[in-house]
Design a protein around this nucleic acid. Structure first.
Length: 113
DNA sequence: CCAATGACGACTT
DNA sequence: GAAGTCGCCATTG
């Protein structure tokens, strides 16, 4: 059961959890904000997010193109897209519409201070 | 221990 | 501007 996960995963989960509803961010933005590892590590962390004790809105994290790259990794391949649409983020062909418009940067948290 | 892969991204041709 | 190549860092074979 090894709940003891790396601090890196925990940081990613915490950050993703801070993503406002109806907003999305990218792997690169998270990796850049954490200044750790790389975009691939973020994806890996989200993949392990299923073992997180709290809910991680991983569906709000997409790649640089706005594609729902990890939709196949969810419980169901359509869960990610349905959740985004449900929260007000239009998705077309597994790609977020107006991606740049709904994009939310984790650095924005620091900006609020 | 070496090789391949992965929810990616930026650079080069 | 599209396609190809390399880099990132960790997990798995």
């Amino acid at each position: 059961m090894a709940k003891e996960v790396g601090t890196y995963y925990d940081a990613v989960w915490a950050l993703v959890r801070e993503i406002p509803e109806g907003r999305i961010t990218t792997f690169g933005a998270i990796a850049d904000a954490l200044a750790l590892g790389s975009a691939r590590m973020v994806g890996w962390a989200l993949n392990q997010s299923s073992q997180a004790e709290f809910f991680v809105p991983a569906h709000r994290v997409v790649n640089r193109k706005g594609e729902l790259s990890g939709r196949l990794n969810f419980e169901t391949p359509t869960l990610m897209e349905e959740r985004l649409v449900k929260e007000g983020v239009p998705v077309k062909d597994h790609v977020v519409v107006d991606f740049d418009k709904y994009f939310w940067s984790p650095l924005d948290l620091l900006h609020e201070e």
